[in-house]
Design a protein around this nucleic acid. Structure first.
Lengths: 102, 102
DNA sequence: CTCGTAGTTTGATGCATCTCGTACTACGAT
DNA sequence: ATCGTAGTACGAGATGCATCAAACTACGAG
């Protein structure tokens, strides 16, 4: 019933877009936060010194690259890391990035 | 004695820059080519439909990010992948990217 | 010394992206 | 129905980046 947002399928995910999505400091921070949670979280609860619209922009970039999935839940949107999909496509990549010195 | 080019040390390499360097299709192709060789290679021998100056620009981006090292040898410059350094900093990352569907 | 080769530097152009404020939509609570 | 909350959409401004051509440097060969 709530509007579904478009996500790339496994086959549609391209490594260049994933890397570009992860290359931004703000988005990398978001991903690191998401990685510490087993469940998804509302986008707004990730603390960041940026405006709402900038947050939306980055979340969209991550979603369109296939890094996160977003599921509407009431007035909020639950964002979660597509860890299984990324691990299936690029084994080792996510771990390598998350273990990097912050 | 030929002019040395500046390379970031291990401690200076930042994950955002590495990811940004790898996010470009041209540079990713360069890295894939370099990964197939055990030894370094002259930059020009990587076949690409781009101009000389564009090639230089991308090589510089890769070098400054810490992805490749460049060593002058006569009139040529031998470029090689900093595989050991990247593996030490981000274990799994390079493998995950190189094994990705082209 | 002269020439050709390999690569860099500079400057310009066009496109992408990061950022924001404002206006808008969707949903829940009162 | 009204209000507040969570987030999106739309411009707009500034910066960054990919690309090229042209001029330049550095080295080796002859």
């Amino acid at each position: 019933m709530p509007e579904e947002l478009p996500h790339p399928s496994l086959a549609e995910i391209r490594i260049e877009r994933v890397l570009h999505a992860l290359a931004d400091p703000v988005r990398l921070h978001m991903v690191r936060e998401l990685a510490t949670l087993s469940e998804g979280v509302a986008c707004g609860s990730i603390e960041l010194p940026i405006s709402k619209s900038t947050r939306t922009h980055h979340l969209r970039t991550l979603r369109e690259a296939g890094v996160v999935s977003v599921r509407p839940s009431g007035t909020a949107r639950i964002t979660s890391l597509r860890r299984d999909d990324l691990d299936a496509l690029y084994p080792g990549l996510l771990e390598g990035i998350l273990n990097a010195p912050h």
